[in-house]
Every structure is written in structure tokens, then in C-alpha cells.
């Protein structure tokens, strides 16, 4: 066997796929070739060492993010199917409508006449409260649907690869009156992990309103302040905490102001913030 052939066999040997005949040939060659023996040992030891690199667990937030995405996707799909069904119904109805203008006119007149007759025979004024009740329900349902769609848009934009799209996602969150937990979670995730500082800053701004009403958001923003590394985002977070006068933030701010490795501007801002949150 030549040295070249041995090299082709090594990957099978490492993965345990080499058969007995192959192994015997390999060992026979190694016994007579010091160069290959040396390479065999070195590469083999690196291959074994790779096995010692432990597997890691992803964070729990990843599952929550996936579930929110899947839910939003399913919801969007159902909406699309509803529209599709409506289109089919319209198409079917259109099939019944006559093609000739003269017949169309005739149909219209006949329907008008039937409508007038029915309206006249039923009488006046009794149906109005019922119909207005029904239309109120209709409006509420529509409002809910718009709310859901906006959340869907925000969530899916925040998942995009392009920073511009993610920025749009952050901006579209302003249109949601009361964002659901998945949207808030996605925004907080953007504050903590987005690679683009502009997206992180925009997400901090978008969380102003939710932060003033929701305690968990305030808590998570304080946590975020402790882990941020971008001075701009840190200052934006400090300003937000000052604006909502978050007392819980005092201790982390004090720590930030005292930390030597923190940016000087951030430390000054933290000291300034402490004077304002009393």
C-alpha cells in the first residue's frame, strides 16, 4: 500500500467504518513507514480531542421565540386561507351572473322590485337596535384582527436578516396598542442581542410605553442595562429608566457608576440618573 492510499483510509478509520481487512492493511503499512506512523498518531490525537469538546444547551428564550414565530406563521396562513376561500366563493357567484348586459339590467330591475316589495311588507324601524348590536360585534372583531395582524407583521419583521427590515419591525410595533408577550419578548431580545446598534436603540425607544405599564418589562430592561456593552444603548436605557422613574434601577445604576471598565460617559450619565430617581 502507498502512503496516499493510507490517507484515504484514515477518515473511515476514525469514524469506525473501516473493516478488518482495511485495518490490517493500514497497520501493516504503519509498521514499515515512520512518517505515516507519526501523522497517524498526531491526526488521531486531534480527532480524539475534538470528542472532548462538550455539547452546549441553547437558552430557554430560543424555544419561546420559535413558538411565537410558529404561532404567528400559522395565524397568517389561516388568514390567507380565509381570503382564498372568499375568492373562490366570489368566483362561484360570478358564474351565476349573466354575461349579456340586457339580462344583467333585467336581473337588477327584478331584484330591486323584489327588495322593495319585501321591505314594504316587513314594516319599519324594528330591526335597528339588533343590527347596530351586530355591527358593534363586527367592528370589535375587525379591530382584533387588525391588532393580530400588526403583531404578526412586527414579529416576522424582527426575525429578518436585514437590519433595515428589523428596524421597520421595531417601528411597526408602535401601531400595536397593547403588545402581547411574544412581541415584547422579541423587542427585548432585540435590545439584548441584535447585532446592529441602531436596531437595539430603536427597540429601547419602542419599549418606553410598555415599560411604563408593565413591571416585567421594567425588570428585564434593568437586567439588560447590566449586560449591555454598547455605551449608546446603555445611555438610552438609563434615560428610559429616568423617564419612568424606576426606583428598582438605583442599585444597578450605582454599580454601573462605580465600575472602572465602563465607558466614562456612561458612568457620568448613571450618576446623573441617580440624582433624578429619588
Amino acid at each position: 500500500m502507498k502512503c496516499e492510499q493510507l490517507k484515504e483510509m484514515l477518515p473511515d478509520y476514525w469514524s469506525g467504518a473501516l473493516d478488518q481487512t482495511g485495518k490490517a492493511a493500514l497497520e501493516a503499512h504503519l509498521a514499515g513507514c515512520a512518517l505515516c506512523q507519526r501523522e497517524f498518531e498526531q491526526l488521531g490525537s486531534v480527532w480524539r480531542k475534538m470528542g472532548a469538546i462538550p455539547e452546549e444547551r441553547p437558552s430557554a428564550a430560543m424555544r419561546a421565540r420559535f413558538e411565537a414565530t410558529l404561532e404567528a406563521y400559522e395565524h397568517g396562513l389561516q388568514q390567507a386561507r380565509r381570503v382564498e376561500r372568499r375568492k373562490k366563493l366570489d368566483h362561484w357567484l360570478a358564474g351565476w351572473w349573466p354575461q349579456q348586459p340586457a339580462f344583467q339590467f333585467g336581473f337588477a330591475v327584478a331584484f330591486l322590485a323584489v327588495g322593495l316589495l319585501v321591505g314594504h311588507s316587513i314594516g319599519r324601524g324594528t330591526a335597528s337596535p339588533v343590527s347596530s348590536g351586530a355591527s358593534n360585534i363586527e367592528i370589535t372583531r375587525l379591530q382584533e384582527e387588525i391588532h393580530d395582524t400588526r403583531q404578526l407583521v412586527t414579529l416576522s419583521m424582527l426575525q429578518q436578516q436585514s437590519a433595515g427590515d428589523r428596524l421597520q419591525g421595531v417601528n411597526s410595533s408602535y401601531q400595536i396598542r397593547q403588545p402581547d408577550p411574544p412581541v415584547l419578548d422579541a423587542l427585548l431580545h432585540a435590545v439584548n442581542y441584535d447585532q446592529n446598534v441602531n436596531v437595539r436603540l430603536a427597540a429601547v425607544d419602542a419599549l418606553h410605553r410598555p415599560a411604563s405599564t408593565t413591571e416585567i418589562v421594567r425588570k428585564r430592561l434593568i437586567e439588560s442595562l447590566q449586560r449591555q456593552d454598547s455605551p449608546m444603548v446603555q445611555i438610552a436605557l438609563i434615560d428610559l429608566l429616568v423617564e419612568i422613574k424606576e426606583k428598582e434601577a438605583r442599585e444597578p445604576l450605582r454599580e454601573l457608576a462605580a465600575k472602572a471598565d465602563v465607558n466614562a460617559a456612561v458612568r457620568t450619565r448613571a450618576t446623573w440618573a441617580l440624582e433624578r430617581i429619588q
Partner: peptide, 9 residues
């Protein structure tokens, strides 16, 4: 984590 999300999406 972002890339895993991206793959499933």
C-alpha cells in the same frame, strides 16, 4: 440562536 430560528423559518 438567531441562525437556528432562521433555519426553521
Amino acid at each position: 440562536e438567531d441562525l437556528v430560528q432562521d433555519v426553521f423559518f
